[in-house]
């Protein structure tokens, strides 16, 4: 019971830190500005302004959530250990795992708030784009919602990745850069794998490369799994199996990351 109270308190403090962080504040402001401007621009779009608006607004929320995760990880996790501010907390009668989970909870809270707030902003403005459009398709709200959840999934996975790297590295920038790397790779592993497996390459692929791609596919988080933008844009039916698989995959991957991070963190010298 007590551990939960600690995780909650730590999470709330982290959330506070995130909302009070200058960099994150300016990111949020920029996000709001972007969201508004995409709506304006989409209405100038000749073809399918509604589809363009959905695409842009979802992309904005996604990039925002990811950037906030990255910077929260940098400023409120890695740097907290680098500057020793976290030592005060670790010197309290709590285990390192509780500390780590508290931080992760804070990250979840902030991401949830951001996705909810910006998702709501986008949702409220989409009907505005529709005004004056003749025979515009109706918006697939359910899919739009699932797409938001997917975005949340991606940013939380990346948050857990940052946590793992923070437990490993001693400098604050390293986890940041490595998470950025994971983000880029994680987005494309599936595409690369499919491309190679379809045998579309001009020359037959060396087995070593094939092996490497397969390892990367299973090692790095498959982030494209959480990308439901297309379904939201065109109102296609989301296969329940796909959504369920993404959910379970995300949860399992996250739990593994957290367990690894906690194990490594336990052994770490806080000097």
């Amino acid at each position: 019971m007590h551990s939960f109270a600690c995780i909650r308190a730590l999470g709330l403090a982290t959330l506070k830190g995130g909302l009070r962080d200058r960099l994150i504040q300016s990111l949020l402001l920029a996000g709001l500005f972007f969201l508004l401007s995409t709506l304006v621009f989409s209405s100038f779009s000749m073809r399918q302004p509604l589809e363009v608006a959905i695409n842009y607004s979802l992309a904005t929320v996604q990039i925002l959530a990811i950037l906030v995760t990255l910077f929260l990880g940098l400023n409120l996790l890695s740097r907290e250990i680098e500057t020793r501010a976290g030592y005060l907390l670790m010197g309290q009668p709590i285990s390192r795992t509780v500390y780590l989970l508290g931080k992760f909870y804070g990250l979840c809270l902030l991401n949830f708030l951001i996705v909810a707030f910006f998702g709501l902003c986008a949702a409220l403005s989409l009907p505005l784009v529709k005004i004056g459009l003749t025979n515009a398709p109706s918006i697939a709200w359910g899919n739009f919602f699932v797409a938001q959840l997917g975005i949340l999934g991606i940013s939380l996975l990346l948050g857990a990745v940052t946590l793992l790297f923070t437990a490993l590295a001693t400098s604050a920038v390293l986890p940041f850069l490595m998470t950025v790397g994971v983000w880029f790779i994680g987005q494309s592993t599936e595409a690369v794998k499919n491309y190679l497996e379809a045998g579309l390459t001009a020359q037959p692929m060396p087995p070593a490369l094939k092996w490497l791609v397969t390892v990367a596919y299973y090692l790095f988080p498959n982030l494209s799994l959480f990308d439901f933008k297309v379904y939201a844009i065109y109102g296609l039916t989301i296969p329940p199996l796909l959504a369920g698989y993404a959910l379970i995959y995300g949860l399992v991957y996250m739990v593994i990351l957290l367990l690894l991070a906690a194990t490594l963190f336990q052994k770490r010298d806080m000097t």
Partner: peptide, 30 residues
């Protein structure tokens, strides 16, 4: 560490918090 108070060599705190907020956080952990 439940009944132990500690002051580190180079104290450094979460500078986005106020002293009251910080003490509240620490009190919860205790």
């Amino acid at each position: 560490r439940l009944h132990v108070g500690y002051l580190s060599e180079h104290p450094h705190f979460h500078d986005f918090l106020t002293p009251l907020e910080l003490l509240h956080l620490l009190g919860t952990m205790r």
